[in-house]
Simulated assay, not measured.
Amino acid sequence: MSDIDGEKLVEAMRRSADELSSPRGIRDLDVTLEQIVTSAVETIPGVDDGSISMTEGGRVDTRHPTNDAIRRLDETQNEFNEGPCLAALETPPDNGVVVAQDLADADADADAGRWPRFAPIAVEAGYRGLLSTQLRVAAGPLAALNLYAHDADVFDEHARTLAGLFGAQAALLLYGAENARHLRRAVDSRDVIGQAKGIVMERFTLDDDGVFQLLVQSSQETNMKLIEVARWLVGEVTARRSPETTGTAAATRE
């Protein structure tokens, strides 16, 4: 790579890092995914549209496609069980990048030959090039960034290198956003359990250990998770204290 290309690469990565690492993007997984797609399409040469494929519950879902045509093409790959996006998710090369330079090339050893059912549909939709790079770090969610091009042979060495580095950077942010989501759930659960403990402590005059044991016992006897017991208890108290409920109770007493 030339010095000029290197400078452009650093500039592009720095610009993408600024966009992707905004506080809201790190906190919100969905916002982060949308930023990844937008930044990649704007940054990587030759790219016209994009999306993210993400495995959830054993299935592959398309997230934040730049238009409906891209959503349909991603879904077509899932339907046929073939295509660069699935290849990047399942068995990508060492650099994590799968490239289709010309899906219109009908040669058996070319891209159309690798994905014979998907390729003609992509070309008919107006896309001859497709690059997909895996977004994954250890213990993180499995995803792939899909970059579509109207023209063939646009993914040169510079574009492929940039896509690979961008994918590694985006994977870390995706992992961070996913961890932030789990952390929020853990904090929310702790808060709800704390509220439930306060309610039980007030009603039964128990200390902290006694309250927790009571909640655990209730969880075991009802075959409900501890957090579910806590949410039910907090919900019941909240409903009783709501203005509507209070007004109804007052009217009944009258």
Rank of each mutant, 00 (worst) to 15 (best):
L226V: 13
H158N: 06
K225T: 15
G247Q: 07
A88C: 05
Q134S: 06
T32A: 10
Q101K: 12
E157T: 15
V60Q: 01
E254M: 05
A143M: 07
L130K: 01
A88N: 01
W232R: 09
D61R: 11
R117F: 00
N95A: 06
R117N: 00
V137H: 03
Q195L: 15
E7F: 14
A180L: 11
T222A: 15
A251M: 08
N146Y: 02
L73H: 02
V216G: 05
E56A: 08
L162H: 01
D28L: 12
G46Y: 08
S132N: 10
S219G: 13
T55E: 13
E79T: 00
R71E: 13
T43D: 10
A112D: 02
V123I: 05
Y175S: 07
T43E: 12
E244W: 10
G83L: 03
L103E: 03
M54Y: 11
T252W: 11
L206R: 05
E228W: 13
T252A: 06
R160Q: 12
A104F: 09
I193E: 12
M224I: 14
S219F: 14
V154S: 05
I121D: 00
N223L: 14
N179L: 11
N81L: 04
F204V: 13
T66L: 06
V47E: 03
E157D: 15
I193D: 04
L29I: 13
E7C: 10
N179I: 11
D49Y: 06
G6V: 13
A186T: 14
D28M: 07
E157C: 09
L86T: 05
S218V: 15
A17T: 14
G6W: 08
E82C: 00
H182C: 07
R184S: 09
F212M: 12
R63K: 06
M224Q: 14
L33A: 04
V234C: 10
A143V: 11
E56H: 09
N179A: 08
D74Y: 01
L142H: 03
T133Y: 05
T248V: 15
A87T: 11
S22Q: 11
A239C: 04
G198S: 04
H182M: 08
G58M: 04
H64L: 08
P243A: 07
L214C: 09
R240D: 14
R15P: 08
N146W: 03
W232T: 15
H158Y: 14
V237Y: 08
R241C: 09
G58Y: 02
P120D: 00
E11H: 10
V192L: 08
A168R: 05
R15L: 09
D74Q: 02
T43G: 10
A196G: 08
W115T: 00
Q213C: 11
D5Q: 13
N179Y: 03
L33T: 03
E236G: 08
P23R: 02
M1E: 10
G167P: 04
H182N: 05
V10M: 07
S218A: 15
R231C: 10
V200E: 05
S2W: 04
D61C: 12
Q77D: 01
P93S: 01
